[in-house]
């Protein structure tokens, strides 16, 4: 990994509360090269928040701190909101879970794609439209001209997510954070959307962070996997080695996965150990 796009050391996200602060992300460290990094964990494990913190998208009163957070040669820890705004879409972009909710319902999908382009490239209306049409083609939408003028409620989930990918990649970011990009989609289109995303990310030499609760998906799709629990990274390993994971939480999760062809009367329940919260193995 000579080509580090992003390096994060001891990232913390804290939400101050009336009865003490809530630590959503605790001392998360990782690096990202031109690879596909999976972050898995249960709901509330801090995996989505980690992705958002990298983009500076933690809503106040949440606070982001880190010993180091570098994007290429940029120090993100010193970045203010205006600085982050220039990076979003242009250097780091994010695909959200459900296109039904993550696209503006009263603007045509084409205009929403073109909007990203115009924000980051000094382009006129015409040029932005052409770029958006090209991008729609890149996410394998047939008849981009027609789709350009559709509103989000007129496109299917799979098409909506491709629009979302187009909208996020049009300004040519280095890193794409995909936050549960397929969990709202029909199973049949999930692989299709993943393949489209993977193709684009590879051909552009980007880094991808795939946030998911789906162990199967992450282990088959990604190069490396971070396993998060209660805001901490409890395990980092190559995706292929996930079966040999050492942390009891990961092992517990894996044990709870049903397998085709192996009928089991009962799936084992995950037994949580309070010691995991301390983050020591």
């Amino acid at each position: 990994m000579t080509d580090t796009l992003l390096s994060v050391r001891n990232l913390r996200v804290v939400y101050p509360g009336d009865d003490g602060d809530f630590h959503a992300v605790r001392d998360v460290s990782f690096t990202l090269g031109r690879e596909r990094l999976g972050i898995v964990g249960e709901s509330g494990s801090g995996k989505s928040t980690t992705g958002r913190a990298i983009m500076g998208l933690v809503a106040p009163p949440g606070r982001i701190t880190a010993d180091e957070m570098r994007l290429g040669d940029l120090d993100l820890t010193r970045m203010n909101e205006a600085g982050f705004r220039k990076l979003r879409g242009k250097r780091i972009a994010m695909v959200l879970q459900d296109p039904k909710y993550s696209l503006d319902p009263v603007m045509t999908v084409g205009d929403q794609i073109a909007e990203t382009h115009r924000q980051h490239v000094n382009a006129g209306r015409k040029a932005a439209r052409l770029a958006a049409l090209e991008m729609l083609e890149a996410v394998q939408i047939r008849d981009p001209e027609r789709v350009y003028g559709l509103y989000p409620h007129q496109v299917s989930g799979g098409m909506g997510q491709r629009v979302m990918i187009a909208m996020m990649l049009i300004a040519g970011p280095d890193i794409l954070i995909a936050d549960e990009p397929t969990s709202a989609l029909d199973v049949t289109v999930q692989t299709q959307v993943l393949a489209i995303m993977d193709n684009l990310v590879r051909s552009r030499g980007m880094g991808l962070i795939l946030v998911s609760h789906n162990l199967h998906l992450v282990s088959s799709f990604c190069d490396r996997v971070l396993v998060m629990y209660a805001g901490r990274v409890v395990e980092t390993c190559a995706a292929g080695d996930l079966a040999n994971a050492r942390h009891p939480y990961t092992r517990g999760l894996l044990a709870a996965l049903p397998e085709l062809g192996h009928r089991r009367a009962e799936l084992p329940q995950l037994q949580r150990d309070p010691a995991w919260l301390e983050g020591s193995l």
């Binding site: 979003r88 879409g89 242009k90 909710y101 993550s102 696209l103 909007e115 924000q119």
Partner: peptide, 17 residues
């Protein structure tokens, strides 16, 4: 509070837009 607002922020749009 809607998701699409988060998406527009992730695109790097100005707060005005």
């Amino acid at each position: 509070k809607q998701e699409y607002i988060l998406a527009t922020l992730a695109k790097g749009l100005s707060p005005f837009r």
